[in-house]
Design a protein around this nucleic acid. Structure first.
Lengths: 204, 204, 204, 204
DNA sequence: GATGAATGAGCGTTCATTCAT
DNA sequence: GATGAATGAACGCTCATTCAT
């Protein structure tokens, strides 16, 4: 429907740009409209209100990302490989799109509780992907059979999230994607992976 | 100093109460003043501006917490024990003070970038405590000698933080402190601790 | 002429329906268009602007009413009979068409001064009918020969109008048309009619 | 309380001036504030919102008027005299305060249904005064013993209201107060007063 | 004639901060 | 030191109207 219209994505991309450049609280609707090259009122033909722009932004960008990860992961055999791919894709996506990184890691978190709860709904899709990897790893013996999946997932997501946030707070001074292998190793150990055997070559 | 006057802490505690009950965006200066039992203008005799209240809040509460941890940790011998104490104290402090937990984990993160950067300054003290534990663990052979301290610290802090946030988002439905041992184990593994041997009794 | 096209009346009737159901301030052009089953832009092929719809609405509905009254009155002999017919027709028309009653008595009065002045132009036709009745009554001796026609007309119109408005504000709880005879009697007295003699049968 | 502060009446008077000069829809809060010589925000120390200004305006001005009428009327003996005083005071008040006349007769009626209903609440006090006069007149034999008080009140109020509105629509071209005696006479007749006897001298 | 997507001006209200008392 | 009345900048959203198709 409306999502097929070019202006829909145009406005979302304008929102990312404006928020990344000026911060969440400086992202007035009129500024987003100007950046998108449309009139203020046009925004409201595609979005219910300002909050709807931000939720849609997150849904579109994160949704696309989750789908990509999902299909890429399908091609890997071991849970360890899948986890590495997830971490690495996550880091690469944000490295390649620093505006989006700032928006999702810092700016959007300044929103009110309701918006943040909706963002969390979207994130659940991502957390499910992690859970699948963990479950598979437990079942095929890669990970400890006593692993608490919920807590392990919190470790994985928390570590990735904190790593990205720190990188941004340090103004992207170093190469985020270069950390993938080390982080992967930390997390694998955390999951009780049989450290020496599966890791071959470049990962360690 | 102004900090020695009773009204200083009175205002900070009022801020915690007001933010915990009504959320960051409902925490108007006049409401904090009413809760503290002072006039609006009085706030500005003790704090430069509203942001200053929130930074001071974080400094006072987190500062006290870091000092406590630091002195408690001094009594423990191994890095593993210190880490367990840190995790457990962290979880217990927030379990025992849910208002403060909501304020620091959710509400204060809605503030703008500048405020969050100052909050990060305060957090650095906490991160240093973690770094000390990790360094000690590496030096005395408890942890892997190739451990990247910065990334391990991000894993530890990120995992703790995500665990607390998830607990709050689930409206404290379960016992946070009960997770200490399991989280500790995950993180120890992550750090390459010689899993089986050192953990005795209740940790595993 | 444009007025001859079917969509002209279709839009006016849609306007009455929309205003009656949702009130003046909720009667957006796009809503009227939807109710009329035409596109927004089509409205502007038949009406200069929104105000023009409302004026035309009043002209059409009130104009029709005045013509009806005029021809009906012609069949009556005395001024008193004509006045009764006028009051009774007025009450019946609005009783039978409550949507229109709400629109003309309440909603349209929320319009701005210019629109209300144009509505008054239309009303002048109605006031002229009243004036004719009064003049005839004075001339044939039914009414006081000192009667001030302008003021008597204001009394008649003001009384009818206030009676209808009160009826609507009371949510049509009682039968408006049942008041015709009593109101007629009050107004006849006001006009100095020789009370006892001319009123025969049902009027008193 | 707040009503005792001088700024309360200052803002109400500013509202009358601004609405009278520019019309209801041009009466922005900021314009009223400027006219009152206060900051926009100050308005909200004395009034809940814009609507509250207008209701208060009506309550203050009409409330004062009703009290005045009530006490003046107490000094008159007959219902006829009381009615004359009421009409004459009504006309004089609005003649002496043409801005207020425009505001209450034309502009305030453009407000939405809720505001108009609150205005009607205030008006009920005025209608009660009329009802008292009518009841007294019926009881002491001045008026017809079959007089329907509700309808007679609608005639009296409707006639006065229509007379004032016509005067304003004619841009105050003639002397409104000069009509008091004639209107009084019309209404007395309407009420079935024994025409010849009670009216002495100046009334007719 | 008919459409409907796009336009953009306009405004009530909040609240951090000041300063005369 | 303490007060609290006053300030005024800032912004999301609606809807009558246009015009390219």
């Amino acid at each position: 429907m409306k999502k097929s219209r070019p202006k829909y994505m145009q406005i979302i991309d304008a929102a990312v740009t404006v928020i990344a450049e000026n911060g969440y609280h400086q992202a007035q609707v009129s500024r987003i409209a100007r950046e998108a090259g449309v009139a203020d009122g046009t925004i409201y033909l595609y979005f219910k209100n300002k909050e709807d722009i931000l939720i849609s932004l997150f849904e579109e960008k994160m949704g696309t990302f989750i789908e990509k990860i999902d299909s890429m992961i399908a091609g890997k055999e071991t849970a360890a490989e899948k986890l590495l791919l997830l971490i690495d894709s996550h880091f690469r996506m944000l490295s390649d799109n620093r505006g989006l990184a700032v928006v999702t890691q810092l700016e959007l978190r300044q929103s009110n509780k309701e918006l943040r709860q909706k963002i969390n709904e979207v994130l659940k899709g991502y957390l499910k992907v992690i859970d699948h990897i963990l479950l598979e790893g437990k079942q095929n013996g890669e990970f400890s059979e006593t692993l608490d999946i919920r807590l392990a997932r919190q470790m994985i997501f928390g570590t990735i999230d904190e790593t990205v946030t720190t990188w941004i707070m340090n103004e992207h001074k170093y190469d985020l994607a270069a950390l993938s292998a080390t982080i992967h190793n930390l997390l694998l150990n955390g999951c009780g992976a049989h450290a020496a055997r599966p890791s071959i070559g470049k990962i360690e």
